[in-house]
């Protein structure tokens, strides 16, 4: 089975979400696609190729950037305590209204893991439980991150202010 243009673009967008650099995103996609194509299809039946390739991209990205400590592994695998009042879904994000330039500034600033979470929510339409299972992040960690993301979007400075800070 070959990936068509639409699928390749979606996968590129995912790689771009993680790496945030167009050249890195293309390298990620190409290398992951090469790995995928080397799998002996006569012996290994892959039920959802696009999802599988997305996972290859993610694993490769984590491996690649682990050395640079750009992947926040410290909070990645551990359950994080969070306030009892925290929402148990993406609802706090659903309610948010932001301006485009505000998003662009925060998008550059947040970690790849946070962008990954937002991708699974906004683009793939996953629930917090699905995201937690798929990304192998403890639910508490995920919800805590969602909570912090909401805070960031809510408290982000106005576009005409201190832009040099970023």
């Amino acid at each position: 089975m070959n990936f068509d243009q639409q699928q390749l673009n979606r996968l590129y967008q995912y790689a771009m979400t993680l790496s945030h650099q167009s050249a890195d995103a293309y390298d990620l996609l190409q290398a992951s696609l090469e790995s995928y194509l080397k799998i002996d299809q006569s012996k290994n039946r892959i039920e959802r190729p696009e999802s599988y390739l997305r996972k290859l991209i993610r694993n490769r990205f984590i491996d690649q950037y682990r050395y640079d400590q750009r992947w926040d592994l410290s909070s990645f695998g551990e359950e994080v305590e969070f306030p009892a009042a925290i929402a148990l879904s993406y609802k706090p994000l659903e309610e948010l209204q932001v301006q485009r330039d505000q998003l662009e500034r925060i998008w550059q600033k947040i970690s790849p893991l946070d962008r990954d979470i937002l991708y699974h929510w906004a683009v793939l339409g996953f629930s917090t439980q699905e995201t937690s299972d798929l990304l192998d992040i403890p639910k508490g960690t995920l919800l805590s991150r969602v909570h912090r993301l909401r805070q960031q979007f809510k408290t982000a400075p106005e576009p005409h202010g201190d832009q040099h800070e970023y």
Binding site: A25, V98, R100, L103, W107, V123
Partner: peptide, 23 residues
């Protein structure tokens, strides 16, 4: 690009941000 249009739901803004990237 800075888009000076008004606010929109975060989800929609993220979708647009991601969708602008093409091979």
């Amino acid at each position: 690009n800075i888009n000076l249009q008004g606010s929109a739901p975060l989800k929609q803004q993220i979708q647009q941000e991601i969708d602008q990237h093409r091979l």
